[in-house]
Amino acid sequence: MLRILYAPLFCFGLIGLATWLVGYRQLSPLWLLALLPVAILLSLLAERLAPYQPSWNRPHGDGPSDLLHALVNEALNLASLAAIPLLAGLLPTPALWPLHWPLWLQLLLAIAAADLGITLMHWLSHRSALLWRLHAVHHSAPRLYGFNGLMKHPLHQLLEASAGVLPLVLLGLPQDIAALLAFAIAVQLLLQHGNVDMRIGALRHLFAWAPLHRFHHLRYGRAGDVNFALFFSFWDRLLGTAFYRADYRLGDQDVGIGDRPNYPRDYLAQLLEPFRASAPSAVTPQTPAALRSIQQP
């Protein structure tokens, strides 16, 4: 039952609760800072109760750096939210945002629009050598668990956030909707990377949760250039990058960067690595035969 209900309850329950608190109880968006640790703890608990790979629940020399990534990146998100009124004052922001819509519908619009921008930046980051250097920090993770979603180079997070949110700010995105959007993104990242053996069935046709996104972290060269979407999997159908194999279970040997198995684990080293002239340290491993045929999700 946990495997079946986890993803929809985690996603809709937490985002719905946040929307109710901020939108309808008129609480400060700062309350979302208290709700995010609850989401992280629920993710960690589910990973212990129903793990996809038990070995991924054990540290791989990445615990301290992952924690620092999460703290720094969420602090940057908070600073970005605080900067929205300043940006609105500095930039021409026509009153195009549908403030008369119900709050939940405004949030859904913001999620869909931001998802398109973030997905396209993500896709571009796998095709631009310069962007890949920054994005590789995220892909260097030796295992997949909830915290991996918050593990990003801060410069790459800034690029993704700008691609997804800046156009909305220019349309007059309210600060409370921006705060809810940031919280929804954090929840979705926990779901995408969670080490929970979730069974999402037909929901994979709509939502880009872990059963799809795990294949994006394949270490076999270009084999991982699939399932770029953050929220909605139909973007990958439009991009021609959708991939799913129900009969293939990923393990430690499948995750990471194939030609960089010794990518730094230390936080500061990971921040500096994109600016170093580092050559591949290994031959890219061959894609397993079971993954060579594409099956649309």
Results as ranks from 00 to 15, higher is better:
L218C: 12
L206I: 13
R219A: 14
L212W: 05
W235V: 04
P211V: 06
F228Y: 13
F234G: 00
F232L: 10
L206S: 09
F232A: 06
H213F: 05
G224S: 07
A210D: 02
A208S: 13
G224L: 07
A223Q: 14
H216D: 10
D225I: 01
R204N: 08
L203P: 14
H213K: 14
H205T: 01
F207Y: 01
H217E: 04
F234V: 13
H217D: 10
F207H: 04
H217W: 12
H217I: 10
V226M: 06
G224Y: 02
V226D: 02
W235A: 00
G221T: 12
D236W: 01
Y220L: 08
A202L: 15
D236E: 02
H205G: 12
F231E: 02
L212P: 15
L203A: 15
H216S: 03
P211L: 06
S233D: 04
S233F: 00
H216V: 03
W235M: 05
A208V: 05
H217Y: 14
W235S: 05
L206P: 04
N227S: 03
I200L: 15
G201M: 15
F231T: 03
H213W: 13
A223K: 13
A210C: 11
R204K: 14
N227P: 02
A210S: 13
L218Q: 11
V226A: 13
A210F: 15
R222M: 08
L230Y: 00
H217F: 11
